[in-house]
Design a protein around this nucleic acid. Structure first.
Lengths: 333, 333
DNA sequence: TTGTAAGCGTTATCAA
DNA sequence: TTGATAACGCTTACAA
């Protein structure tokens, strides 16, 4: 920066002002400085600048499973808007216990980020207060954090739509594929969707049965395993609601391999769901990431920002993986 | 840090030494410092430290299409090892022309990273020299960069295996689905796989035909569109080699919708390929990211590091999407 | 509108 | 083994 100042015949303070586009610089001076910077192909050192201002220009993003489609989409969405505003994104993947303990033990985000985005996490009170101690705004996607902004769908209502769809098709034995994680903890989403399942069936007068709800680790393999277990029941379900499309893919795979026929509905509308003809509940995931990042930006720039709430719509997408109960029953009988 | 020093009754220099685990600190002093830091729940400010040392502790990662499965896997693999060594990863997605121009125009990586990882990019000479001007080690995955380390498969040989598989099944009209991008530039991978297609068919004495090679934008939609075009040919192919599994998925979708039967082989072994019974060439993508990051670390820590080369194996995975030419021909005739 | 100079929170050199 | 102290490269009162 000194070189630029010298070349332009001004002080480093003026160079700094010019490069940051501050208003109080004479046009003629500005031109000279910009030209000097250009000719020396100079860029400011971000770290020095961050040290001096105390603003980190980075956002911390906390997800439980970075490799799942849903989280990938959220992160991609957020990234796209953060990048536009030259904000860095620091990703923390807290899927397993050690990672999580390390994270909350040393809180590597301290002094490191201007804001935090958390996605579909289930925090303990201790973890929440640790996050709070960072002293930066928080936005949560897919779950609630007290005092934080929030972008989400109405999980219970959306899942109820899915289950109701199966009921409307005349199904009376309806299974569910749910998930648990390493810590044997259920993510908020799993809770909400299971609740919807129970409530919807109860309201429809469809008998509930413990056997019909299978909890597995998330993913295609989990889905496959769950469907296989459902198929071994003495009275297997005629329809199954899977907590996510990836689970549903696994379920479809099990059905194909065993040659059995069970209606399957998923949740998310994964990009491959159309190919597999999977009936599902669509949510705009990437867009939730975009909106969350926008909120984050507002939180960082507005002082006295108050947490906002955004509720995104969902749609039932009908495809060929669900059909009326009667059709197959007659065919099989 | 001053507070910690005061509490421990030492100088900031000693605190710094202790916290970085330097050897020349008395055990007793070390304990006192660590305890003081602990009780004040103090962490060093990464930016101040980076400014002082000049080391950024971050790696820049350049990809053309962050949202594709392949690139996601590479990045995830790299991230997992970088994280372990508390290195930050800064992702740049250079898919479209503006992003690319901005990137090479201002080179936001300057003064910003200790090393660079590039994935399956096709750089111009100007871009290469811009990268070189960063003065940091570079590792390339899936393509060559002069003077850089390299992790890759033998693309030509692997693709040849795929095409040869179709030839061995007796196919004589073999199509290919290839890709181009926004800039109408072909990624290195597209080049290599097309070359393998041409060479393998030539060697096998199978007639080549321009019509049988369709170039589309990457993705399921592209694959679907390409297969539809192939099907409208007066003499459509009996087998098709798709440059990637995602393209192959689209091709399968087109076949299903039209009720036609064409053997399809993909490339990658995407996690959903088994579900779709897609014959393909498997490469361990995540692992390539892991190995590249390892190489990067060596490059950053070893001085006088000389570029390494890693060639990863591939496997032909036989599934139900390819079959002998005769079977269907007879059936159709 | 511009310049001077004091931070920002570390690390590193040199003495002690 | 430890402590002063000068960088590191920028920002920002405060003055001019």
């Amino acid at each position: 920066m000194e070189d630029v100042a010298r070349l332009a015949g001004v002080s480093t303070a003026t160079v700094s002002r010019t490069l940051r586009g501050l208003p109080n610089v004479a046009d003629e001076t500005r031109d000279r400085v910009l030209q000097a910077a250009q000719s020396l192909s100079y860029v400011v050192s971000p770290f020095a600048s961050r040290l001096a201002t105390g603003r980190t220009h980075t956002v911390g993003v906390i997800v439980p499973y970075a490799s799942r489609w849903f989280f990938g989409q959220i992160v991609a969405g957020a990234e796209s808007v953060l990048r536009e505003h030259s904000l860095d994104l620091l990703l923390y993947n807290l899927g397993d216990i050690p990672a999580r303990q390390r994270f909350f033990g040393q809180l590597p985000l301290r002094r490191r980020v201007d804001a935090v985005l958390t996605v579909a996490m289930q925090f303990t009170d201790a973890e929440l207060s640790a996050l709070g101690s960072l002293g930066v705004p928080i936005v949560a996607v897919g779950h609630d954090v007290p005092g934080a902004g929030c972008v989400r769908i109405d999980d219970v209502a959306a899942a109820a739509t899915a289950v109701q769809h199966l009921v409307d098709l005349g199904h009376r034995r309806i299974g569910m594929i749910s998930t648990y994680n390493d810590q044997s903890m259920f993510l908020p989403v799993a809770h909400a969707r299971r609740r919807a399942y129970v409530e919807t069936l109860a309201k429809a007068g469809v008998p509930l049965s413990e056997d019909l709800v299978i909890s597995v680790p998330h993913g295609m393999d989990g889905g496959e395993q769950a469907m296989r277990r459902l198929l071994t029941l003495p009275d297997p379900p005629t329809a199954v609601f899977a907590e996510s499309d990836e689970l549903a893919f696994g379920a479809l795979s099990a059905l194909r391999r065993t040659g059995r026929h069970v209606s399957v509905i998923g949740f998310d509308d994964h990009e491959l769901s159309a190919l597999l003809d999977l009936t599902t509940v669509r949510q705009r995931v990437f867009e939730q990431g975009v909106l969350a990042a926008g909120m984050l930006r507002r939180a960082m720039t507005t002082n006295g920002w108050t947490p906002e709430e955004l509720l995104m719509p969902t749609t039932l997408v009908l495809r060929a993986s669900t059909w009326p109960a009667a059709v197959r029953t007659v065919g099989a009988g």
